[in-house]
Design a protein around this nucleic acid. Structure first.
Length: 424
RNA sequence: GUGGCUGUAGCUCAAUUGGUUAGAGCGCCGGACUGUGGCUCCGGAGGUUGCGGGUUCAAUUCCCGUCAGCCACCCCA
């Protein structure tokens, strides 16, 4: 045995490649329907592209090394810094809002687990230059339409939506001090994975008073508009901080996608750079990791050394999505069928079969034939195993008549067809 | 990076209290079948029992290490 692939790296056998291609096709179809243009960048980038904003500690999460010229480089773990650089370089010339998407293969040096590898493909869709909630709704709608395109409905996948500004305002109102805000976000992020008491303990351990912790957890428990409206109504600053979130939900309703979306204030997203509406897509039973995560990141592009443009977008990986598609078997994602399997009855029929086969291939058909002398039974067996639609049999009798036997392998019916017709 | 669980054929799994040549189904190859596939029957290939060491007369079985997978933590692309 020549060993095996590195841990966390996949080999794609034809069946898996077919599934991947299917997912990529849905991704590109949806992106195109939303008017997004595809871009790409280098898979290997200067290390400082990632350490600049995330700090040195990110290095042990990366595939980072020195190239032969001594440059510190890293396999890209995310696409946003590259996107920021590319947009910045042409910011003046690009018509806003910018709608761009990409399907990069990303790398992270982490211990792998189910649904989480050291390499994956990720659909990135970003809408840059528009700060309003309709841009967020557009991005979320695209994420939902990918699910629909893969055959999933509201009973299969759910989108959970929150707004960082709303969560922040409510937490401030609950009495959470600014210096405890980060910890509180982390705790809210674990809202459904840990018992309430443990979450409470974490908050008090972070210095929150018990009553404040209770109020903070009550914020994370908000799951519907009515409760959110009530909570917002108590704010001294006024309830308008929730306007964008409500507008976004309204837009999704208007698009007919409201059935997929839930308000969920425990969604905060770990990353500090999110500034507004944030969302995650999960399988409905929540048995797998997140399918997709994203949100608004106004300010990030500027912080990355680029231009000061508002932006919203998401990343959707292929690993969890593949598992879901496979598990639900929502669609046959095998490749296109073989059109014709040519059968040579005797050795003298091989050359005519080669000629006919190549003419048919030139005409655009997919054609195979046995690569060694075999009985017709064997050849038909191979044709069936290859999934061919039809077998075209060429023997001495057929050559004499100038017409081959065309056998429909699904129906089992046969008919004689002139060679000239087969070549068309 | 830390901890727990698990590693037998390509896949799913067997193998008495540690016992002599590690089995089965599916899949794969060949034959029955030299002018008609799917079915059936027969045969075959394929294992350093993840790897290394230890205990023992004897290890797939017990112990240690290591690697890999899964789970939790960390982190969340």
């Amino acid at each position: 045995m020549p060993g095996q692939a590195l841990p966390g790296f996949r080999e794609f056998y034809p069946e898996e490649t077919a599934l991947r291609s299917h997912i990529f096709k849905v991704w590109r179809d949806v992106a195109a329907r939303y008017g997004f243009d595809e871009y790409d960048g280098p898979p290997l980038e200067p290390l400082e592209l990632y350490t600049a904003k995330s700090g040195e500690e990110i290095v042990d999460q990366l595939y980072a090394f020195h190239d032969k010229a001594g440059r510190a480089v890293a396999l890209r773990p995310e696409m946003t810094p590259t996107l920021a650089r590319m947009v910045a370089a042409r910011a003046q010339a690009l018509k806003k809002p910018i709608r761009w998407f990409s399907i990069p293969q990303l790398f992270r040096y982490e211990r792998q687990q189910r649904g989480r590898l050291r390499e994956h493909f990720q659909l990135n869709m970003d809408l840059i230059g528009e700060p309003g909630p309709l841009a967020d709704a557009e991005i979320i709608a695209a994420a939902i339409d990918v699910q629909r395109g893969l055959g999933f409905g509201p009973d299969d996948v759910r989108v959970r939506i929150a707004d960082r500004r709303v969560v922040y305002a409510l937490l401030v109102h609950a009495g959470v001090a600014d210096d405890a805000m980060g910890t509180t976000y982390t705790v809210l992020d674990k809202f459904e994975r840990e018992p309430r008491k443990k979450l409470h303990d974490r908050l008090t351990a972070a210095g929150l008073e018990s009553a404040v912790a209770d109020r903070a957890l009550a914020v994370g428990a908000i799951r519907d508009r009515a409760t959110l409206s009530t909570a917002l109504g108590e704010l001294a600053a006024g309830p308008d901080v929730g306007d964008d979130l409500f507008a976004c939900m309204d837009a999704l309703d208007a698009m007919g996608l409201g059935e997929f979306a839930d308000i969920d204030l425990s969604i905060v997203r770990g990353l500090a750079y999110y500034t507004g509406i944030v969302f995650e897509v999960f399988d409905a039973p929540r048995s797998l990791r997140a399918i997709c995560g994203g949100g608004r990141y106004d300010g990030l592009l500027k912080a990355l050394g680029g231009v000061d443009l508002p932006a919203t977008g998401f990343g959707m990986g292929d690993v969890v999505l593949s598992e879901l598609v496979r598990a639900r078997a929502t669609r046959d994602h095998t490749g296109p069928r073989l059109d014709t399997f040519l059968i040579a009855v005797t050795a003298e029929d091989v050359a005519p079969v080669l000629e006919l086969g190549h003419v048919m291939r030139d005409a655009g058909r997919s054609v195979e034939f046995a690569l060694k002398a075999q009985s017709m039974g064997k050849q038909l067996k191979l044709a069936a195993a290859r999934g061919a639609r039809r077998a075209v049999i060429v023997g001495p009798d057929e050559r004499a008549a100038g017409a081959a036997i065309v056998r429909d392998l699904d129906a089992g019916t046969e008919e004689r067809v002139a060679f000239e017709r087969l070549k068309q």
